[in-house]
Structure formats: C-alpha cells, structure tokens
Computed example of a mutant assay.
Amino acid sequence: MAHTIFVLNGPNLNLLGKRQPEIYGGETLADVEAECRRVGNEFGFTIEFRQTNAEFQLIDWIHEARETADAIVINPAGWSHTSVAVMDALAACTCPILEVHISNIHRREEFRHHSYVSSVAAGVICGFGTHGYPLALQHLAKRLGA
C-alpha cells in the first residue's frame, strides 16, 4: 500500500537558492522537491509537496493532511517561532509529524531557538541543509514499514 506524505513548506522557502545562500545554501525549492520525489519513489511514497507564504493556506493543507496523509514533513520556516495556529492544526493530526529546518535554528538568533511546532512533532531535523528532507523521508520509511 502506498503511503501519502505531505511535505509542507512555509514562508520565504520559495526563495531558496536566492535568499541568504550563506545560511540556506544554493539549492532551490524545485531541487528539494525533486529530491523528495526521488527518495519518496524509492519507498513507494506519494509525495504532496507544497509551499505557501500564506499562513491560512498552510493550516488548510494541514487539515487536508489530517484526513489523507500517512505522515507530514513540515518546514514551517518563520511560523515555527510565532504560530500557535500552525501548532494547533498539527496537534489535531494523528499521523507522524517531522519538523525540518535547513539551518541550525539553535545557532541563530535567540528568537529562533523556540519552535511551537516542535512541541507536537515526533522529531526535529535541523542544520543538515536541504538534506534534512530526505532524512525525514528515510525515517518515515522505517517508521511506516515502507
């Protein structure tokens, strides 16, 4: 049985490869999506890969994932540190949730050290660049028995 994994991305991630490459690297979000699809195919996953700069849209996608996904990989970006609403939406999900950050948020500004999303995530991957996404999918493959 194919597992559906939602890979959700928050604000400004559409600027990967252009915005602060010294922090986020040179890969684009299209590169990340291609790698997620490649790794997902290895495990027979159906990947729903999405990015938004609108908080309500991310919440709507989390609600959709609650009904249709076997797991969520989420990089909430700046909303990690500010959005109780995103945390509440994720808390309503019963599937595994993995939080991914490209940079090591604990080595950055103090306000980035706290993530509301971490309190509802099964695990957090940060500081491995865009490689954190395939790491999350690999973990889910083991966890879901794919």
Rank of each mutant, 00 (worst) to 15 (best):
A77H: 15
H106F: 14
E109R: 08
F49W: 10
R38T: 03
G40D: 05
E110K: 12
V84Y: 14
G44C: 07
C36F: 06
H106Y: 13
G40A: 00
N41W: 08
E42A: 11
I97M: 11
M87V: 11
I74R: 01
L58T: 01
D31I: 06
E99G: 09
R108M: 04
E67R: 14
R50S: 07
E110D: 15
I74F: 00
W79Q: 00
M87Y: 09
T82G: 06
F56D: 14
R50P: 00
D88Y: 09
N75H: 02
V32A: 07
D31T: 05
I105D: 00
C95M: 15
S103H: 11
R38E: 15
C36P: 01
D60Y: 04
I59K: 11
H63W: 02
P96S: 04
G44M: 01
A65R: 05
E35I: 01
T94F: 02
T94C: 14
C36S: 04
T52Y: 14
V73Y: 02
F111Q: 10
E55K: 00
T46A: 08
A89P: 04
Q51S: 07
A91T: 09
L58K: 10
T82E: 06
H101N: 15
I102F: 05
E35D: 08
T46V: 11
A34H: 08
S103P: 00
S80A: 15
D88A: 12
E67A: 09
D60G: 08
N53E: 03
Q51C: 11
T52V: 09
A71H: 01
I62C: 04
S83V: 06
A91E: 07
A69P: 08
I105C: 01
R50G: 00
F49A: 05
P96A: 08
D31Y: 12
A91H: 04
V73E: 05
S83Q: 12
G40I: 00
D70G: 00
V86N: 05
A69I: 06
R108D: 03
F111H: 14
I97S: 12
